[in-house]
Design a protein around this nucleic acid. Structure first.
Length: 483
RNA sequence: GCACCGUUCGUCUAGGGGUUAGGACACCGCUCUUUCACAGCGGUAACACGGGUUCAAUUCCCGUACGGUGUACCA
């Protein structure tokens, strides 16, 4: 049977980085096995819907290169792919469970349920629906149940969990897991508003959509026995489960805002390359067992396997992510990068932004930054003619120095296209300028950089002069000499 | 509280009954260099604890500790 997996987010906000990883693992697993990856929208909680969230999440996923073979935005043979559009289905299946004795009607109000939990807490027992004392089909009797239903009394459908059997299942990542029946709550399947809870909708849809592997976050592990029970109650074969470890804050709690960016869109806005983010996130909790750390999209598909997903949660290391982004910055085609950077340069109103020139600048400075957009700031003296202001200390360090002025003058006079065409000529010029004034090379190059770029640090000076061109260099040198 | 899951350098991890416990990020040092960076080289740094099994345990088993998740008419 061919692999069918799904990513099933709730449209309650922006796409979380942890969700991206879950989606990614599903995607990689499907593609690795030549299977199908489905997007399903789980919008059964009508109170938490956020306008535009579905579109945003799909856009974030697409940005990261995670695409779907079936879903609300692309169609497919197992639709609709949005749970609110499958409303009638869940009631039908829920009732089937009532009829075969696997589920039952309950009439408790939320106040009554709150009171029950309070009692249980006071008595020091685990809060759990008490089937034998609460108001439900069993305690009020069939006759009364029918009467209440007849007068449209508010009710829910609950799963009738067998108290004396253990529920066991195999998890691809964690191995065999067992839960005692008495620990499992009589989960609500259909809410009083007629909508299904996650548990029912999830199981019904996974079955109907012929999902073979449920790959989801570890936080779902404790509710998996309920799902297993549901599959049994329906007489369906359960899919294979794989609960992936959580992404963690530095304090090892579930990754959240407070400690940094967590939304995929935040990372996009910060300037991370999608491939770098995906590469990094793939390696949080999975590794191929080799020393390789840089993987293209296709290499990830090739290498990915559930067997090599870790059990323990992974602290999200922002610093290593920065490093990885830098690795991508260094390896990508400068011309492509130039095209990506161009809009930002235009927005800043720079005048030297011919694509080829920008590509040359990127190539010159990219080893010194982690982000493409940092190039804009780092090399502002190459893109524009207006230099950032010099601090008074730095200005003082080069002013009133006649030896330096002499050297700069010589350098400036020797400057032409030929002298900056190749490294040797440039070196010769700098050297003779420095020596004729009685300066050491080091003592000359530093102020020269300062005069030309107004920066103490920067890219290779020859490369910088080369890109600046003799004309622009002369203007800057002249402005120093005339000051 | 109860249930479940987990625990190798600060972080991501490899490994797995007998290893100098490997790699990467970060950090430190050296080299290169006009600067910064890159690169290269080197360094600091880890098997949570206690029992058991075994000739041998970081690796297997059991406890403990610690951490996480769950415990909703949320997903």
């Amino acid at each position: 049977m061919s692999v069918r997996v799904r990513f099933a987010p709730s449209p309650t906000g922006f796409l979380h980085i942890g969700s991206l990883r879950t989606a990614l693992y599903n995607y990689l697993f499907a593609k690795h096995h030549g299977g199908v990856c489905i997007l399903r929208i789980e919008d059964t909680d009508r109170t938490r819907l956020v306008e535009g969230a579905i579109e945003e999440q799909i856009a974030s996923l697409a940005w990261a290169g995670v695409t779907f073979d079936e879903g609300p935005h692309v169609g497919g043979n197992h639709g609709p792919y949005t749970q609110s559009e499958r409303f009638d289905l869940y009631r039908t299946y829920g009732m089937q469970l009532v009829e075969n004795g696997s589920a039952y009607y309950a009439f408790d109000t939320s106040e009554e349920l709150d009171a029950m939990r309070l009692r249980q807490q006071a008595a020091g027992i685990a809060p759990k629906y008490d089937r034998s004392t609460m108001r439900n089909q069993f305690t009020v009797g069939d006759h009364e149940t029918q009467r209440l239903l007849g007068e449209n009394a508010q009710h829910v459908i609950r799963l009738k969990v067998p108290l004396h059997t253990d529920v066991r299942f195999h998890d691809e990542i964690r191995g065999d897991v067992v839960f005692a029946g008495r620990e499992i709550d009589d989960q609500i399947l259909l809410k009083s508003d007629g909508f299904p809870t996650y548990h029912l909708a999830n199981v019904v849809d996974d079955h109907l959509m012929e999902i073979t592997h449920v790959i989801r976050a570890e936080e779902w592990l404790p509710s998996t026995p309920k799902h297993v029970l549901l599959y049994e109650a329906f007489g369906w074969k359960a899919p294979t489960f794989a609960h992936v470890p959580l992404l963690l804050n530095p304090d090892r709690s579930k990754m959240s805002k407070r400690h940094g960016d967590v939304m995929v869109r935040d990372f996009a806005e910060k300037g991370f390359f999608p491939d770098a983010l995906v590469n990094f996130v793939a390696l949080c909790g999975w590794n191929p067992g080799t020393d390789t750390e840089i993987f293209s999209h296709n290499e990830l598909i090739q290498a990915f396997s559930l067997e090599r997903v870790n059990k323990a949660g992974a602290v999200f290391d922002y610093k290593k992510l920065d490093w990885m982004n830098g690795e991508y910055l260094k390896s990508r085609d400068p011309k492509e990068l130039a095209a990506e950077l161009l809009p930002a340069l235009t927005a800043r109103g720079y005048q030297y932004i011919e694509p080829d020139f920008v590509a040359d600048v990127i190539e010159l400075v990219r080893e010194r930054v982690h982000f493409l957009k940092d190039v804009t700031e780092f090399a502002d003296y190459l893109f524009g003619d207006v230099l950032s202001p010099l601090s008074s200390e730095l200005a003082a360090s080069i002013s009133g120095n006649d030896t330096l002025r002499t050297a700069v003058k010589t350098f400036r006079d020797g400057l032409n296209n030929a002298s900056i065409a190749d490294l040797e000529a440039f070196k010769g010029l700098s050297q003779s300028a420095a020596e004729s004034a009685g300066l050491k090379m080091g003592a000359f190059m530093k102020p020269l950089r300062l005069i030309l770029t107004h920066r103490e640090v920067g890219a290779d000076l020859f490369g910088t002069v080369h890109l600046l061109g003799a004309q622009r260099c002369s203007v800057r040198l002249d402005s120093f000499l005339s000051s």
